[in-house]
């Protein structure tokens, strides 16, 4: 599929999904309602388990020595709760202030909880990685190429002379960053997303700030 058509299709699907599941904007003590039923179930687990008191309502402002779930690499590697779930069920009794155990949580609850944590992390990392301060940083094109063809596996879907030819030149640095991070609508979510968009959202949780700077340097050098 042509990259433009594919991107347009992804955007249309995501917009339709977002419209169908338009969230209420009324904030409560657990933050804003989530955009889908699964994510809202996950938010309920997150809030009723009082995760938010230590890890933050939106994963920012972690308190009481709790892990920073916005940046913890383990969360970025998690797939549907396979890493988060065992920790939640067993708790962390050795911490300075022990994290309680939740041994009775069902696989469905763990899956919902993990989906919500990933959703919050994607929203948060997008905000962080598109902050104005990022514009002043300059990456290394060589490192960006290594990421593109290596750990990021970008080359399994994209190539500079192929689908990306002529695309990169249309964007300034800020727009290129936004498109690279989340090539979909502002409220794009993993649930129901195309494989391409879902991959970008997963990467969004795994990029370091330097990874993004380097990728942009690599793409801009190829103009």
């Amino acid at each position: 599929m042509n990259v433009c058509v594919r991107a347009a299709t992804e955007i249309l699907i995501a917009c339709a999904l977002a419209r169908a599941q338009a969230p209420s904007t009324k904030r409560d003590a657990g933050g804003y309602p989530a955009p889908t039923a699964k994510l809202e179930r996950g938010r309920t687990v997150y809030v009723i388990s009082s995760c938010h008191f230590c890890h933050g309502i939106d994963l920012t402002g972690a308190a009481m020595g709790a892990a920073d779930l916005m940046h913890l690499p383990l969360v970025g590697r998690d797939e549907d709760g396979n890493l988060i779930g065992p920790i939640v069920r067993a708790g962390l009794p050795n911490l300075q202030t022990a994290m309680p155990q939740y041994p009775d949580y069902t696989p469905q609850q763990i899956s919902d909880l993990a989906a919500y944590v990933h959703y919050l992390r994607q929203q948060g990392r997008y905000r962080e990685l598109t902050a104005a301060s990022q514009d002043s940083e300059v990456g290394e094109a060589k490192a960006g190429e290594q990421y593109f063809t290596g750990i990021g596996k970008c080359n399994t879907c994209h190539s500079l002379p192929g689908d990306l030819a002529g695309v990169i030149g249309k964007y300034d640095k800020a727009a290129l960053r936004q498109h690279l991070l989340r090539p979909g609508p502002d409220n794009a979510i993993t649930e129901g997303a195309s494989a391409g968009l879902a991959s970008h959202l997963k990467l969004l949780e795994r990029y370091s700030d330097a990874d993004v700077q380097n990728l942009i340097a690599y793409l801009q050098a190829a103009r």
Binding site: D28, A29, G30, Y46
Partner: peptide, 9 residues
Amino acid sequence: YEYGSFQSS
């Protein structure tokens, strides 16, 4: 108070 709730503290 430290159990979770959607109500205000």
